[in-house]
Design a protein around this nucleic acid. Sequence first.
DNA 1: AGCACGCCGACT
DNA 2: GTCGGCGTGCTC
Length: 749
Amino acid sequence: MSDAFVRVALDHPLPTLFDYRCAAPAPPPGTLVAVPFGKRSVVGLVVEVSAHSDVPAERVRNVESVLSGCAPLAADWLELVSFAADYYQRSLGEVALPALPQALRDPARWVRLFAVEPRFRLTSAGRSALPDALPARAAALRRLAQALVDAGPLDLSDARALHAKASATLAAWQAQGWVDTDIDADADAAAPEALDNAGQAIARPALTDEQTQAVDEIAASSGFSPFLLHGVTGSGKTEVYLRALERLFAGAPQAQALVLVPEINLTPQFEAAFRARFAMLTGSDAIVTLHSGMADGERARSWLAAHTGRARIVLGTRLAVLASLPALALIVVDEEHEPAYKQQEGLRYSARDLAIWRAKQRGIAVVLGSATPSLESWWHAEQGRYRRLSLSRRAVADAVLPSVRLIDLEEERRRGRGSVDGISGPLVAALKARLERGEQSLVFLNRRGYAPVLACDACGWLAGCPRCSAYVVLHKSEHALRCHHCGWEARVPRSCPDCGNIDIAPLGRGTQRVEETLSALVPGARVLRIDADSTRRKGSAQTLFSNVHAGEVDILVGTQMIAKGHDFQRVSLVGVLNADTALFSHDFRAGERLFAQLMQVSGRAGRAGLPGEVIVQTRYPRHALYHALGRHDYVGFATATLAERRDARLPPFVYQALLRAEGRTLEAALAFLAQAAAALADIPFAERVTVYDAVPMTIVKVANVHRAQLLVESASRASLLATLRAWQPILRSLKGVLRWSVEVDPLDI
DNA sequence: AGCACGCCGACT
DNA sequence: GTCGGCGTGCTC
């Protein structure tokens, strides 16, 4: 038996593969192996196999074990992670290994993951033919598997032997008709029908002409076909996804579909809708979900179902875009404009962009759905690179778009009708009218806590975080000041720590304060608050939302969390407080985000035949953004905003990347970035790249670390990428900061 | 990223 | 005189 070598990717920042020795024949590329690395043992991914190694023989160590319980990851998956690694400037292993469920990265769990769990039922023939000892034999097999796991260190040849023995035994029994192993199908037949938010069974609705056309076009497409499904809230985008999948499965019985949703909260209702519609898909793993809230074992099960092809529909959040899907034939990205598709730590990938890349790689259709598409996607559609499908009408009969009313806060003040705690008279009157009619209202405010800061009237002291350059938010009910950046907490002081004045007061408003104010201003109303604080406990969000659906709430106060996905049947009024801050933000995308949020929150009003009204409180009632909102005019907003972006040379007309540095001092971070910028002069591709000055980040200090960033951009994506590739080794050679990172296509600048 | 080695301040 | 701070370097 001769030796062979495998070149292995490890979850490690060095952009190199590591050579290990193994017995020939070597496990093929795509296989997971456990290898020694320094003092530890880690799981890596075989990328290449070779008969020799350039590493000195004495330094090459041996592969410890090989995962043989499932097929190796396919070549197209390796190509996907290689692309992502190159594009987002990370090592292959840093992309590939975190993309796997944690259970697969722990060799101690391999045996259990793939151990035979005999799932069978004794037939009546079996009951008479087999001796009573039979159940004991099944139990003995399980005990054997368990003993193997507990015994450690693992001997995988034994696990395979166990697997083979159990499979053979079961097959023999099945051949005799003694056992029935096909028990998954029965489980499916008993799948409960899907219920909507109000607990009513979901019917298969008739399609509008526009929906029919959209489904037909998607079904008729061949090869790489990106679609932008532009549909107002309530226009039935989900029904288009469902029908597109139906048509796919009708023509390709083994095909897999990937459906991405922006948030974990939205997976249960999508899952219910897909399970109801696709009850005919057999096997308990035919429809699986993948998101970060799942337990390790559950996620591994879903992942493996996708990897083996048993899962026909994979429904998940952004991480699902990196799932192994050997028969992938259609991708849906719902609410494609959502910032949640962008991972904001570690590998900062855009799941939407990777979804499009995967569709192109496999030559399949990808449907991007949104009422307010990202300007990037809209621009692609304008250029004819994406096929646009429009749903301009609400699918529910007699549901019309709500009217939008702007309350001019300046004028309210001039007329002496000052608002109470930021809530204007007209809004209060509208809330009272809804209460009298037994209808529900929704009040939207993008700031949680009681008040954004605590202030001293006498000396001007403002409560700040000792570890961050930010104010701490007052959480009144917990008697706490909390930093929303680092989590620091303190009890509310009785007096000003600077001057001793006891007259310290909250400044500004958060959801808690609005909840309190509304309870006072609208007597008799049952007010409920839903935000990250009130839903911290697992499952509490579902409970609170069900209270709203059950009609136990008159006024719902919340952050954007209340704007997504929920069809509130009795809501006829949406109030928006304090949206103006985004209008003059330094972030050029703030307006786009605000518009999308307001359109989305507006869509909550009047969904079931009730005339809906949206009231926006603003000091700038003549701002173009609000006018476009009033006309429900996404196209006008997008056209105008794209023209501004073009003039200002901003995305999507340029491509950007950020170099971020974190140092013990701001000076250290800035000095690092200055050196990095200077090094660009020696990179030939950098001629077509613009480098901006290094600047401190808006919140300079977070948890005692000082942060600064450097923006680089280019009209040529290829030049930018080539520059980043050449920059990487130079950056690694620079010293003086705690951490640095490159982000490609940043959303927040 | 971990986890070592290695060289300077506040404690027994 | 040590324990421990984080600067630097290595991992097939």
